[in-house]
Computed example of a mutant assay.
Amino acid sequence: MDEVVRFVRLGDHAFVRPDLLGLPARRGPEARGGDQAVAQLQAAVRDGDAALSNRLILDHYLGGADLATVFDEVLAPAMHAIGEEWECGETEVFQERRACEIFGSAIHDLKRLLPPPALDAPIALGGAPEGDHYHLASQMVDLVLTEAGWRSQLLGGALPFATLSVAAQRHQPPLFWLSMSHVGDPETFWSRYRGFVEGLPDSTRLLVGGRAFDAESGAFSERVTYCEDLRTLARKAALPASNAAESGAKAG
């Protein structure tokens, strides 16, 4: 199905029977992108309308936007808006939790549209470190790297730095990434983080991001690259054009 999706995205063609591929009906180009799309998605997830939420996100992707742009411009702003509503008491806890489930399901649906990476594609490992139970940001990073041609492996959330170090040493990935949405005790966290960075294999570079990342504490090494958003991460993690093309050809 990935070749069909690629054809539609490149030419902005329309599916006549998207249901035959297990896809929702598209809403058309007027529904893609911008503040309107964010507001529509925010309202849909608040109301628990998973089908409409999936259509809005899928429209943006099938319209030709890469996943980093879809996440940065549509999904993440809507997700943050729902979180702010919950913090202000404008949305119930169950609505915020349900929204997270809807977003997670939409991300899963996007993943199945991507071609699998080549078996010999470079590996990227990552997840959320200790104390950080937020999983949506990590899932988005995982998909952005997969789309870029990496064999991305999402390790999970709330992972102690000790086990992250074991993963890095065992797999020796060219790329490791951390999504930081929450930091507990700062002194303990950043001390363990520094130990993790210093113990990375010489061939491994680290990409970090998230609203809890502190540049003063976290960007102490030249091996650490901070990514302010997913589009930045996509640029920093871009594979050479020849490698990416070869990966796509082998996956197909």
Score class of each variant (00 low, 15 high):
R235M: 10
A168R: 00
A158M: 04
C227G: 09
Y193N: 03
A215C: 05
P129T: 08
Y134W: 11
G157F: 07
L239N: 10
A241V: 12
R192F: 07
E187W: 03
M180S: 10
V208C: 03
Y134L: 08
V208N: 00
L154H: 12
F213W: 14
D229E: 12
H135N: 02
L233N: 12
V208I: 15
P173R: 10
A234S: 15
H182N: 03
L136K: 01
D229M: 09
T232V: 15
A219P: 09
F161E: 02
P160C: 09
S242L: 14
S181N: 14
V141R: 01
S181M: 13
G210I: 00
A238Y: 14
T232Q: 13
L178Y: 10
Q172C: 02
A167V: 02
S165H: 12
T188V: 11
C227F: 13
S221N: 15
L233R: 14
W150E: 04
L159S: 04
R192I: 05
P201E: 07
F189T: 00
L200N: 08
G184Q: 01
P160G: 06
A162S: 15
N243R: 15
E198G: 11
L145G: 11
F161T: 02
T225P: 02
Q139D: 02
G195W: 13
E187N: 06
Y134V: 04
V141P: 09
S242R: 14
G157E: 13
R205Q: 11
T163E: 13
S203N: 08
Y226P: 01
Q139S: 06
S165C: 10
F213V: 13
A148P: 11
A241F: 06
T163N: 05
G218M: 07
Q139M: 12
K236R: 15
P160R: 08
L145E: 08
W150S: 06
A241Q: 12
A137C: 09
D142S: 08
